[in-house]
Design a protein around this nucleic acid. Sequence first.
DNA 1: TTTATTTCTTGCCAATTGACAAGTGGCAAT
DNA 2: ATTGCCACTTGTCAATTGGCAAGAAATAAA
Lengths: 193, 193
Amino acid sequence: MSKQQLIDFIQHILPMPVAKAELISAYFTEIHFAKNDFVLQEGQVSSHSYFLESGCFRVYSIDVDGNEVSTEFFTAPIIANDFLSFFKRIPATDNIVALTNCVCWKISFDDLQICFHTIPEFREFGRMMLINNYSRLKQRMLGMVQLTAEQRYQKLIEVNPELFQQTALKNIASYLGITDTSLSRIRKELVKK
Amino acid sequence: MSKQQLIDFIQHILPMPVAKAELISAYFTEIHFAKNDFVLQEGQVSSHSYFLESGCFRVYSIDVDGNEVSTEFFTAPIIANDFLSFFKRIPATDNIVALTNCVCWKISFDDLQICFHTIPEFREFGRMMLINNYSRLKQRMLGMVQLTAEQRYQKLIEVNPELFQQTALKNIASYLGITDTSLSRIRKELVKK
DNA sequence: TTTATTTCTTGCCAATTGACAAGTGGCAAT
DNA sequence: ATTGCCACTTGTCAATTGGCAAGAAATAAA
């Protein structure tokens, strides 16, 4: 397996000489997850960040009533982890599970620190990655505030149609902030139109 | 005016020798905003980050129907800016306005870059600040998904009661993702109890 | 003070969504 | 084939919320 996709991804997030991207990529090692494998479980301190080359992850937490709430879906290519647990070195409150077989490249926290303090381009890359994730989250928040459940559903199916092949509708429902019952009704209405 | 509060804030986010915190704080210069002053307007590229020593900011954007939607409130002490615009050097989609007279310390993007690449402690501080903001946003997102409007209101009044003295209820309503009418009814119901 | 403007509240009705329960269909183990 | 287990759909009813409009209250302007 080659690291070409990782190198391309790094350069896509932050343009830099290929030699620098290769230098950064040298700190990553390959790891595979099978469908339904846990990438991280609640209570663990996240030890690695993952470049997801192919496949997708689901992130979920358990609410006060004991129900699973899907909080995020990572679809390749992306850097995936629990930022809070990883960077603050605290136990995760979320679970991350592979929805499909996945090809990943991982980097440990210690190696990431070395890169961060010795490779200026990596610093910029890392910051940009955080900004991008912040931005995605903010967009989703705006959607929750401004859009109806039906509009949020339509947006999701437009932006990420593959998701519907890879996870249960009930997981998508909790991600959209509605019950599976409501989602079912919304889908029914949209079929009519 | 002394920079002591800024120095304390830096050390609170990321413990470090006081000399380092002072070195970082040297890049910040004082600036005041009067109530209703714009800190940033839609379309501008954010040129500075602000340490808000006292006072508070409101962040809002305009939705498709032309309505103001409050997306965030910054209350001192905090580092406040439009991260997306500031770090990506792109026009802001949000407006930031001072809700009260504010005492701030600002740092330009260029100076921040210098700190970022020359002061290891600042790198860690900056990253931790981004993580903290990401975490706040994620908590708010979870609230939008898991809590009722009434619960979100109660949480806000618990965590940030001063806010209700400093901005109109309609702004709080849009922040909570409901109409001002609904907020009014929720408040009425809670008075009964 | 008077006037004008904005904010907040309230009532009415409609649309959305949730809670609960029953029923259908797919899938896997036996 | 049977059984059990989930995921999904559907119906009924209740609660929440929005849209609209009118009026009250607070604030700003003249």
